[in-house]
Simulated assay, not measured.
Amino acid sequence: MSEGAAAALSRWLEEERALAGASGHTIAAYRRDVSAFLGFMALHRGGPMGVPAIADVTIADMRAFLAAERGRGLSSRSLARRLSAIKSFCRWLAEREGVEPTAILAARAPKFRKTLPRPLSEEAAGQLIDTVELQARDCWQAARDVAVVTLLYGCGLRISEALSLTGRDAPLPEVLRIFGKGGRERLVPVLPAARLAVQDYLSLSPWPKEGDGPLFRGARGGPLSPRQVQKATEAARMQLGLPSSATPHALRHSFATHLLAAGGDLRAIQELLGHASLSTTEGYTAVDESRLMRIYEAAHPRA
């Protein structure tokens, strides 16, 4: 891409970070998506892609790009996400630079079927947490992994939210302030079992608790990686014979589903999960039709 396009991309990403509250992972993904698009177009059209050239992209160019991405094995879901980032950047360009990337904005993302989450049963969730403790070599690491997965299931946290906690957050209060996707803030009640699990971990950890340091640490004292939690969960899942869908994120699904099944209000669960849209929360829950009908009838009693 040209220097002008590179500078525009950097400005857009900075606005996304500062104003929209996009995470570091999201910013990195946006950069890859837009850079891949501009790189393809430069080769496809035989010249560097500056800001003015973006307005000259045609429908045929977009079809070539989408076909090339599918040819590389990119899934429909990933391609739709990539196209969304490209369109967001181009809309920003249209507002800031006055370009009219009509063909890019008109491109349609491939359709894909949203896979419904598969929450665990209450018994399986409890067994998974208990079995995670058996996967680590050291007692403190076992206690750490139990504390993390207990927060996922007991508080409905994302794994990134649990691992972003610092020493200043411990001992955990009864209500925890969490900053989720898009910088959205929410208050999450913390169950006594979760507070106790974190205290057990801290009492065994060889690393001192530091206010600005990560609450959950890896074997060498650095921040605990999500992959380490995933590996411990995978080992526990295989030991229990649970399906491959029994992931750390499935514990968050299970939190929502079990709350709803116990009579929880869908709007309240939406707030606990930090979802911007209620439809997203509905997708995180799975209850049988008879339970859904009881919820519906309670909300809409017949005259």
Rank of each mutant, 00 (worst) to 15 (best):
R11G: 13
W12R: 07
W12A: 03
L13H: 02
E15W: 06
E15P: 06
E15Q: 14
E16G: 14
R17D: 05
A18E: 15
L19E: 15
G21P: 10
G21D: 13
H25P: 09
I27N: 05
Y30E: 13
Y30L: 11
Y30H: 14
R32T: 13
D33C: 04
D33S: 11
V34Q: 02
F37Y: 02
F37S: 00
F37V: 01
G39L: 10
G39E: 10
M41A: 10
M41S: 03
A42F: 05
A42G: 13
L43Y: 08
L43M: 09
H44I: 05
H44T: 05
R45M: 04
G46Y: 06
G46K: 02
G46S: 04
G46I: 02
G47V: 04
G47T: 05
G50C: 01
V51S: 11
D56A: 14
D56F: 03
V57A: 10
T58N: 13
A60L: 15
A60H: 15
D61H: 00
D61P: 01
M62S: 06
R63F: 13
R63W: 14
R63S: 15
A64V: 08
L66K: 06
L66E: 08
A67K: 09
A67F: 07
A67L: 11
A68E: 09
E69G: 12
R70P: 06
R70D: 05
G71F: 10
G71K: 07
R72Q: 14
R72K: 13
R72H: 12
R72V: 04
G73S: 03
G73D: 09
L74Y: 01
L74P: 04
S75A: 11
S75T: 13
S76H: 14
S76Q: 08
S78I: 00
L79E: 03
L79K: 03
A80T: 07
R81W: 04
A85L: 00
I86H: 03
K87R: 06
K87Q: 10
C90F: 00
R91D: 12
R91P: 07
W92T: 01
L93K: 00
A94R: 06
A94M: 12
A94T: 07
A94Y: 01
A94E: 14
A94D: 09
E95H: 05
R96E: 15
R96C: 07
